[in-house]
Design a protein around this nucleic acid. Structure first.
Lengths: 214, 214
DNA sequence: GTCTATACGAGGATAGAC
DNA sequence: GTCTATCCTCGTATAGAC
């Protein structure tokens, strides 16, 4: 389960190890798909990031689409793993919302390419490669919290559906835009530990304030 | 300047009209690039949306990249046209923020593909096709408003840079995700007039509440 | 399991008639 | 200005040796 997060996904690879190479390819593919999406991704580019031959992709994943599916699979799993264990029914709407956001942001901070992958899939392929539409199920959870908060008059009157989208935007837009729009203040890297935790706090504070009564 | 916004960008086109066909191609290209980005966009698909031959693209725009540049150009122009005329220095931070957001959301509501185009360009090409990086200059305006609001203690203490991103996310994420993730409540279309104006109000309310003192 | 070499199709771009 | 037909590169995928 250990993951290499370096740019050049390299490894000793002196001997033959099926699971190892498979993981290496998967990591490289994640990078490539996160930048380009399914169609524009180049299998050659993925192979180049690794130290293995291009044909290994086809050996392990059948074809480019298969590899893409595997990448989505993992993203999907990571997200569910972060959200599902939460018990959000019992806590107050405020607490539930904060817990939810903290879990979500924590997850994507550890997998910063996740939002971009999901977004590209949504835009380019209309989510046809998502079995159960991850984002849908996550949105549902968030909407439920918001509905409860409005009903109990703890939150201001707002549209739960629209607000769920807006909150997700607050949390995820950072990752979509920033890895790439490098006009960052005084050379701070957007994915550094400091910046990530700052974003986490800012996004939560902003969201909580955003639903609060005035 | 009139624009066709139908799916099938068709026209009478009985006679030869340079500017007309050029506009038709541009409109179709906007659609295609908004969904796929530069690399994954297919010139054949663009031609298919129009009624003109594929070679017309090359006649008018030199190559696929030239066409792409033209599309970005227009997006760029629309955005600047919406933001630049505003006088945001004199008004109070609250009013300035609302004016800014209203102008921004009004602009993208009329050009709903704009956020996706910008986002794809940022992710896939790191913004290398943006001359002056539109998003940067717009962000700068927003950051200035936030800084002023914090300094005058009208807004809560927040990081202007991070908050600018979060606010942009609140406003734009809707357009990035929704045209495609059709799991919309009871068949409401995300780009209908009603939904767009609802999003405008919700996003503004959410953003204003988000910067407010608690 | 891993590599090199190659077949083959898709798609960007051009030529040239009208 | 617009079309049809064609070229040729690039990139996916496979064959086959090791």
């Amino acid at each position: 389960m250990a993951e290499t997060k370096s740019e050049k996904v390299k490894q000793t690879k002196s001997v033959r190890d099926a699971e190892a190479t498979k993981a290496i390819i998967l990591a490289a593919a994640e990078e490539e798909f996160a930048q380009h999406g399914l169609t524009a991704a180049r299998t050659e580019a993925i192979a180049a990031k690794t130290q293995v031959a291009k044909s290994m992709i086809y050996y392990y994943f059948k074809d480019k689409e298969g590899l893409y599916r595997a990448v989505l699979e993992r993203s999907h799993a990571h997200l569910l793993q972060a959200i599902q264990p939460l018990d959000l029914e019992t806590a107050s709407p405020e607490v539930a919302l904060e817990q939810f956001l903290r879990a979500l942001l924590d997850c994507v901070s550890r997998n910063p390419k996740l939002p971009t992958i999901m977004f590209l899939e949504a835009v380019q392929n209309q989510g046809k490669y998502y079995k159960n539409s991850t984002s849908a199920s996550i949105d549902t959870v968030l909407i439920a919290i918001l509905e409860r908060g409005v009903k109990t008059e703890i939150f201001r009157p707002l549209d739960p559906f629209q607000s769920a989208i807006n909150i997700m935007g607050t949390c995820l837009f950072y990752f979509i835009g920033t890895g790439n729009i490098q006009q960052f203040p005084q050379g701070k890297r957007p994915l550094s530990k400091a910046m990530l935790s700052q974003h986490l706090e800012e996004a939560i504070a902003f969201s909580l304030a955003g639903v609060q009564k005035i």
